[in-house]
Each structure stands twice: as C-alpha cells, then as structure tokens.
Design a protein around this nucleic acid. Structure first.
Lengths: 129, 129
DNA sequence: AGCACGTATGCGCAAATGTGCAACTGTGCT
DNA sequence: AGCACAGTTGCACATTTGCGCATACGTGCT
C-alpha cells in the first residue's frame, strides 16, 4: 500500500492543514511561515508543524532564503496523488473566502516579491483592521 | 468547510478502510458484510464499523436484503468528492492483488447473485486453501 | 561577538481514534 | 415460539494525534 498516499490523506483530513494546503494550492506561490501565520491566524508552532506534516506527506516543497523558509506546492507524479490534489483544488471557494482575502493582503506587504515582515507586525494589523 | 469531505479523507486514511473502499470501488458490486470479512480477513465488528464510517462519510450506500446487509458504492455529486474517489480508483492495482483474488473467489460462492454463506464457512476455507 | 528574529522540535497533556469484547437487534427457519 | 445466524452498538483500554510551552537552531544585523 502506498504509504505516502495514506500520509497525504491523513495530513489533509485535519481542517487546519487542509486550509493551509488549499492556500498554497490556490495562491500558487511560495509562502513563508510568518505569512502563513498571519493569513491562517494560527500560532507559530502549529503552522510550522502542519507545514512539515504536509511536506513529509509529499505534498509540499520548501527552501530556505535568508532567514525565511518558503513552502510551495510539490508537483505530483503518481496519478492517484494528482487526483487527490485535484480534489482539494475543486473544493468550493466560498469555504475559504477569508483565507483568500487575508492572503492577498499579506502578499501585498512583500517587497520585490520577497517577504520582509514577520508575523503579527503593526503593518499587518493596519491592513486587517 | 465541507464536513463530509473531511470525514471522507479521515475514513480513507486508515489502511483497512482504504482497502475496504478500494474493494467496493473495483468490484463495482454490492457486497455483504460477511463477504467483506472473508475477503479482507478482518473481524466482524471491525468490518461492520469501518463500513459504517465509510457510509457516514458519504462514500457508500447500504440496503438490507433478508438477513444480509449489502454495501455498495455511492455515486458522488460534488466535484471534489468525485476527484477524491478517483484518486482511490487510480491507486496501483498491485497493492491489492490478494484482496482482488479473494474477492473473485468469494463472489464465486454466491447463488443467483446472492450471498448465501456466512463468514468463515467450510466452503470458503476450501477455496483459499 | 552579541543580539534579534524566523523557524524547528522535544516534552507533557488532553482529546480523538482503533480494537476487542459482550450484549443487543432483526431476520429466516423449524 | 424458539433457535441460529447476520449485523450493530456501547464500553473499556491502548495507541495516536493535536496543542501549548519552552527551548534550541540558524541567519542577518550592528
């Protein structure tokens, strides 16, 4: 039995992680942990751990740039994994409206396409007021 | 967030249940609990409970005929649920070879397309000898 | 070198989950 | 009516999983 596939199912079956993965999937961009924290509104340990679980399930990639760690979607090769990712892609957008709005606001704080602000910054609170 | 979808992910993320669902998916027939017991080789309570979880996740239907309860695939309407079922459908067949063989043997014990033998019968042990 | 900050991780606890058992429901047969 | 059998369900227990916390690691800056 495909271990990675089981891990992916488990990873996605948790609402917080599903939201997180949906975000990475629809934003189609790399995203730093601090940005994800602001967008999702969860604590640092949880975001970090959940991203790692998604990574270990073979769903995400990550690379370090300076002090920021960017996570991004991993291209799937096996057809069953592709279909699984597709199932998330087809989830109704309405369920993720706030996530999407927060995401756009948060990405607008980047400079030259790079994250420059940590989580919970004053500028962020300004935005979401 | 789509509760049913989360439930489906959870339901499928357990190897025993995934095997069970794969079976129903590929056999494309209704199957009695007793038959599933022989095919999967699990106890009665586990099969019963796991089938029920798959049912409550919106993945299966069931109907009673005499003393037998037949479970079968439920047609999916939402596109994300369809894609999820598809992902299971595309799992490599090699991982389920024994399940498939047992299934064919067990179905050959039917009479007029109906289950007539309980689990763990002498005839079944004859077959899988 | 020292400090601030972004990120990762081991520990402990509470909640959820899987499993075995035993009791219960419902159906068919005599 | 009584019995045998298919299937379901509540209970107890072991394992797993999510979360908060504290701490450690690594990088950029002064």
């Amino acid at each position: 039995m495909d271990e990675k596939y089981i891990d992916a199912l488990k990873a996605l079956s948790e609402p917080n992680r599903l939201r997180l993965f949906w975000l990475l999937l629809h934003v189609d961009k790399r995203m730093a942990v601090a940005e994800a924290m602001d967008v999702i509104g969860d604590t640092q340990y949880n975001i970090s751990r959940n991203l790692k679980m998604l990574y270990r399930a073979g769903l995400l990639e990550h690379h370090k740039k300076g002090k920021w760690v960017y996570y991004s979607l991993k291209a799937q090769c096996a057809p069953h994994c592709k279909a699984l990712v597709d199932s998330v892609r087809h989830l109704p957008k309405e369920d993720f409206q706030q996530v999407m709005e927060h995401c756009i606001l948060r990405l607008s704080l980047r400079e030259n396409g790079e994250c420059v602000l940590g989580a919970d910054s004053a500028q962020w609170h300004e935005k979401i007021r």
